[in-house]
Design a protein around this nucleic acid. Structure first.
Length: 828
RNA sequence: GCGCCCGUAGCCCAAUAGGUAGAGGCACCAGGUUUAGGUCCUGGCCAGUGCGAGUUCGAGUCUCGCCGGGCGUACCA
């Protein structure tokens, strides 16, 4: 016992040691599939097993646990599962360093974190625990991959991909941040490789449309919308001829401004697109090759700087504008992207600033097709991107002149469709999900490559394809992936023809593992299927998902894609996995993100041993709105501990017997208790946990006062209040709550005691304060009945002495009455 | 550059449909309890809501423009 504890009598660490084994015995949070109660699914993003838990884990689970524990108290059957996202690179790198198997590091960390979660007293259902690196789990990841492949949603193609030279693996677009590897920070380069993809793009529109019904932060929805990047426009076909070859071919461009087609004075093809290579003239080839080499050398960083001058090279080819027959030059440039739209654009310098810059640099013609606003050019305006009447936009068959942008778009698309030279089109920024990884510690791709039969699925009865036992140096990438080098493993018989064949030696992106774990939780021990459809129907979709905003586009988009694909297969009966989402903020210190280099890290373990689990949890919940960042330097866990001690002392002061009827108790205190219970419920449901804690503190203060200078410790209302405090506290500070509950003469566990029934009669106020304003200035306060009528209140206000004084010599012009709270008199 | 969010006491934060700016806490000060410090109890100090306009009987809340901070995005045609 520390000194402080001796004085207060409350020993947090002894309390922790006392109740942990009791709870283990009671197992109060095991979700019963057969329960008749209404079911709720509370999910927190499962952790990656690197080291022990840190402040971030402490925050997200403390917040999430308020909701889960509240639901239990409200009588729901709650599923709040926990597992580990346990494949991934850090384990592999650690294994290479320590010359051991990645599983050693992974499962040791999992045990450490599990023990910490247990002590941290999160209301997890431990019976559903899963690890994505267990063969029992990844067997079904592989099975799902095969289902997607069967529906054409998983396919292999060759294309230039993001390659991380440090991690020696490809990356998804989503994992490249500003040209650097999201994981290790190395500069990402491009490589032409044949890789597996999931066809996310096929779901682009549905992923967009179904966001309507999600109770998600607007921020996340916006991020996903931008990521999907839908735009409307048209494909326009140009005939392209190449000098010196006599060859002619059709080239389509995508544009969102088909109305400006008459102003297309040149065409630009992405320098690294195959098309550029194909149409360049013999004469220009050398110049093009040099430009391409130059482009490839420029890093993504250089390419992304905003005010970089335009570069490009003439391809020696000419395109015919389908609406005016004009022959315009075709250039290659790096400001056009090979993998967006068709990799080629029609350039309209009059209406697009990038094209304007390019045109002025290379002295290409500029034709305006939208009349700029008055004074635009005088003010130095270049490309005019605003709305205005079309000009210079007519041929013998069609004229856009005079039309606004929207009308002109419609008319020109109709015309192009009639002529067969173009069509309206929708385009997305979203690309397919590249899921192959050239690393070891991941889920093997269950496909066999046979020289005779091609890509052959591993038969379902041979799943899982387990990882071979490699460790240490075997895992180092040596040009080929570690699996490709494992000869015994990679060489197999073709399941179709029996001939010699090779396993696919890549593993899956770990985001595949986490795209369906929420389904597995519903039947985590099922040996015969990925998930039990009946149980999934019981529990899914997730009612409340809590996690970091860093997954706004990766994990959340992929999980939505998986769910929709499974819906289309008839395997689930809902299209969105997560009904509501809460993004907690980040725990920072002294205004900055915690980091080793800054030396401002705060150790969760140290905080827990200094202040105890409950005080740390309370501090995190009370700090502010859950989505705000918490600066630990501004927090006072010592203050939280003092509050817990105050609450705890109430339980020792109560002298009435357990079970006593509260109806005879002090009405004033009873009103505070019932009002607090009523409001606390609303506050938890609207995620204003910090305010809920403040209300709880008020109740503790009121109860203290009732004991010391009110009706006294034996009053029934005091017991009622103390018990309410224990139940409210059970959402945030489970140990203190349990100890209080016990001292109040009850059996564990308070976590399942149930939310007290709120007596509506006690929520009614006898009187309220009405304010009277004259000219908006406060002149009087009146104690009135809450159901006073407007006329009554007005009369009362007008009769008030200080109001009369304020009105002296003035004419009352208007009286605004909002019974029972306010009267505002306008006079003059 | 573009888009979104946020600016309330020394600090963290409250303020249901626009209606008394302050619920809760931290820090600080005073009194009581205490051998003393701390704890505990009681009380107190502290802003007119970043700045400027507008709408309104009434604006922290709505609108516009600045200033400051944060997040996202980056040649997507």
């Amino acid at each position: 016992m520390s000194e402080q504890d001796e004085r207060t009598g409350y020993d947090v660490h002894a309390t922790e040691a006392k109740w942990l084994p009791v709870w283990d015995q009671l197992d109060p949070f095991r979700a019963d599939d057969d329960s008749p109660r209404e079911k709720r699914y509370a999910l927190t993003m499962f952790p990656y097993p690197s080291g022990d838990l840190h402040m971030g884990h402490a925050e997200v689970t403390a917040l999430h646990d308020v909701i889960a524990r509240y639901w239990w108290q409200r009588g729901f059957e709650v599923m709040n599962p926990i597992g580990w996202d346990s494949f991934g690179l850090p384990a592999e790198n650690a294994a290479i360093q320590r010359n051991e198997h990645p599983a050693t590091y992974t499962y040791a960390n999992i045990e450490t974190q599990a023990a910490s979660f247990r002590k941290y007293a999160v209301s997890f259902d431990w019976s559903r625990r899963l690890h994505t690196s267990d063969p029992e789990y990844y067997r079904w990841t592989q099975w799902l991959f095969l289902q997607l492949r069967r529906r054409g949603l998983a396919y292999r193609k060759s294309s230039p991909v993001n390659w991380c030279p440090h991690d020696q693996t490809v990356l998804a677009n989503e994992q490249v941040v500003d040209g650097f590897c999201e994981r290790c920070g190395a500069q990402v380069t491009k490589r032409e490789l044949t890789q597996w993809y999931f066809k996310v793009t096929e779901y682009a529109q549905r992923l967009l449309d179904d966001m309507e019904d999600l109770q998600w932060p607007e921020r996340v929805l916006t991020l996903q919308r931008n990521w999907i990047g839908r735009s409307e426009g048209a494909h326009v076909d140009f005939e392209v001829t190449t000098d010196g070859t006599g060859e002619t071919r059709k080239v389509s461009v995508y544009t969102t401004r088909p109305d400006t087609l008459f102003g297309a004075t040149f065409m630009v093809v992405a320098a690294d697109a195959k098309l550029a290579e194909e149409i360049v003239s013999p004469e220009q080839r050398a110049a093009y090759d040099e430009y391409l080499a130059q482009t490839r050398m420029a890093s993504d960083i250089d390419r992304m700087s905003t005010d970089r001058p335009k570069t490009g090279v003439f391809l020696g080819a000419w395109a015919t504008n389908p609406v005016n027959g004009q022959k315009v030059p075709v250039w290659a440039a790096d400001y056009v992207l090979a993998d967006y739209g068709t990799g080629a654009i029609m350039a309209v310098p009059g209406q697009d600033q990038r094209d304007w810059d390019f045109a002025t640099k290379f002295d290409l013609p500029i034709v305006r097709t939208v009349q700029p606003t008055e004074g635009f050019e005088a003010a130095g305006g270049e490309a005019f991107t605003g709305n205005g009447p079309a000009i210079n936009s007519a041929n013998e068959a069609v004229s856009l002149d005079g039309m606004g942008v929207d009308e002109a778009k419609r008319v020109i698309i109709d015309y192009l469709e009639e002529q067969g030279t173009g069509r309206g089109a929708v385009n997305y920024r979203l690309r397919d999900w590249l899921l192959s990884r050239q690393r070891f510690w991941g889920c093997p791709i269950p496909v066999i490559h046979c020289p005779r039969c091609g890509e052959v699925d591993v038969p379902e009865d041979q799943l899982p394809v387990e990882l071979p036992e490699l460790k240490g140096a075997d895992l180092k990438p040596k040009g080929v992936s570690p699996l490709a080098a494992a000869e015994d493993w990679v060489n197999v018989e073709c399941p179709q023809c029996g001939g010699p064949a090779k396993r696919d030696s890549d593993t899956m992106d770990t985001f595949v593992d986490s795209s369906w774990y929420f389904l597995r939780y519903c039947s985590p021990h099922d040996q015969d299927q990925a998930f039990d459809p009946a149980l999934v129907r019981e529990w899914m979709p997730v009612d409340q998902y809590v996690g970091g905003v860093e997954h706004a586009v990766l994990h959340l988009l992929y999980s939505r894609f998986f769910t929709k694909a499974l819906f289309d297969m008839g395997l689930v009966d809902f299209q969105e996995p997560f009904t509501a989402l809460l993004n907690q903020g980040v725990v920072i210190n002294q205004g900055k993100k915690m980091s080793k280099s800054l030396g401002n890290g705060v150790s969760l373990g140290e905080q827990l041993s200094e202040f105890g689990v409950d005080a740390v949890r309370l501090t995190l919940v009370f700090a502010g709105p859950p989505e705000d960042n918490i600066d630990w330097a501004d927090m006072s866990p010592a203050g939280s501990l003092r509050f817990l001690q105050r609450a705890w002392r109430l339980s020792g002061d109560v002298t009435s017997a357990a079970g006593i009827s509260p109806t005879e108790g002090d009405v004033a205190l009873r009103k505070v208790t019932h009002r607090t219970l009523h409001d606390a419920a609303e506050l938890v449901e609207s995620h204003r946990f910090n305010v809920m804690v403040a209300r709880m503190m008020e109740l503790v203060n009121a109860t203290r006062k009732a004991i010391d200078s009110g009706p006294g410790a034996d009053d029934a209302a005091v017991r009622e209040a103390a018990e309410a405090v224990a139940i409210l506290l059970s959402l945030v500070a489970p140990y203190t709550a349990e100890e209080m509950w016990s001292r109040l003469g009850h059996e564990p566990t308070v976590a399942r005691a149930g939310w007290p029934v709120v007596d509506e009669a006690l929520l009614v106020e006898d009187s309220v304060t009405a304010v009277v304003q004259v000219q908006g200035k406060l002149r009087a306060r009146l104690e009135v009945s809450p159901d006073i009528s407007e006329t009554e209140l007005e009369a009362l206000a007008m009769g008030d002495e200080s109001v009369q004084r304020a009105l002296e010599g003035k004419q009352v012009r208007k009286v605004i009455v909002r019974a029972p709270k306010l009267v505002n008199i306008v006079a003059g």
